[in-house]
Design a protein around this nucleic acid. Sequence first.
DNA 1: GGAGCAAATGCCACACTGTGGCGCTTTCCG
DNA 2: CGGAAAGCGCCACAGTGTGGCATTTGCTCC
Lengths: 221, 221
Amino acid sequence: MKHKLRRGISATLEWMTTADPPSSLRERRKLRTRQALAETALALFSEHGFDNTPLDTLLEEVEVSRRTFFRYYRSKEDVAFTAVKWFWSTFLPVLDETEKSGRLADILRDAVLATLDRMDEEWYPRFSATLELIERSPALNGHSLRHCAEIQAEIRRRIGAPDSLEARLLVEFSVTTWRGALEEWLPEGAPGDLPRCVQRAFAAMDRSLRVQVCSPESPEA
Amino acid sequence: MKHKLRRGISATLEWMTTADPPSSLRERRKLRTRQALAETALALFSEHGFDNTPLDTLLEEVEVSRRTFFRYYRSKEDVAFTAVKWFWSTFLPVLDETEKSGRLADILRDAVLATLDRMDEEWYPRFSATLELIERSPALNGHSLRHCAEIQAEIRRRIGAPDSLEARLLVEFSVTTWRGALEEWLPEGAPGDLPRCVQRAFAAMDRSLRVQVCSPESPEA
DNA sequence: GGAGCAAATGCCACACTGTGGCGCTTTCCG
DNA sequence: CGGAAAGCGCCACAGTGTGGCATTTGCTCC
């Protein structure tokens, strides 16, 4: 039963990180319907909105039965998250390869940047389309935040650091900062800008704890 | 359409923050069924698990039709969150009253502590029961995170601070830290310990950015 | 106190997501 | 070529959430 919790990530890793072209004809067919589902879903959801697109529409379009769909993806939300999952499934191995010395915040930031470097051109438009989708649908937003929580747990497991409260907070802060970078990047959406946004966000993270506020009565900085 | 996003919070505030005893008999009846639903839901969910408790069970217990239930609560998740919503609907006014000068992080921490001070004895067991529920149900977890995001937006709106990236990050960090405090508090669950956990978590927040890691090869701090 | 009125409720039917059982077809491999 | 296994589709079902409409209940004005 524990498998169920981890299956999401490990099963994803299983077929995403193996770059070997699937020799078997059967495997190639499976991969094709997988991608067809993900692509068509992203297109349909982007056009009509996530909540206004019944799953049946997607199923008719790809000509797949409902039963089959749920053998590929666990939920309607899941099929919209391919680009996001692809990012994190690349990130985790990158993090494993990273030499872990210095400030944990810097390590995570650099791993994010290195991961971005590995994304190909096709990924960026799909990713930003997914982000827009998430922003406009509460259901997807919840799914996204839950997914981030899973990622955080996985990151904590992989960095050899002690499971202190500080370390846990920092991992959460870093993922939050990553989301902040995305929010700044999204309106423009130029692929080259994303690393810069990440840099700026992580720099802002350092400053944020020292942010001062003053009442309207005493309005000096 | 934008109303939908804000209705959750403002409608909640509407009936939660008005401390006047509802004079009208009708209003009293409504309040009674509201509370009966929340109480019974918490009891049923705690006993059988959130996912294993069909909504119909709750409806039969409270003797309320499905249609009526959804006029009181927007979802099955919603009815389980009464204690959480109560906390935040107390927090926001407290935050408004707070004199806003100094470090934003300190302001938020103190507002949280002041809010805890206003919670009565009955609230604590319900709150911790709710937290346990959230921990054990992915659906509730997602709902909780989405709710936190709404709260963060509301906090940002209420502090007069400029909507800088730093400020936004800090608000998110603070809510995350609050959740971290809850995670530490939950196992024991003694009401008196919660403020201490909050203090500790916010202190850890300051330190977290400086957390160092070192590879197994070079194991010096 | 009674009549009208508005709010609250209950009942019915429906759309949508997700799951389990079962049998058929396709692919693989000896 | 033939059996085994994997993939797939069809059907039926549970559960959540919504809309329409009639009915009851409490409120208010006369």
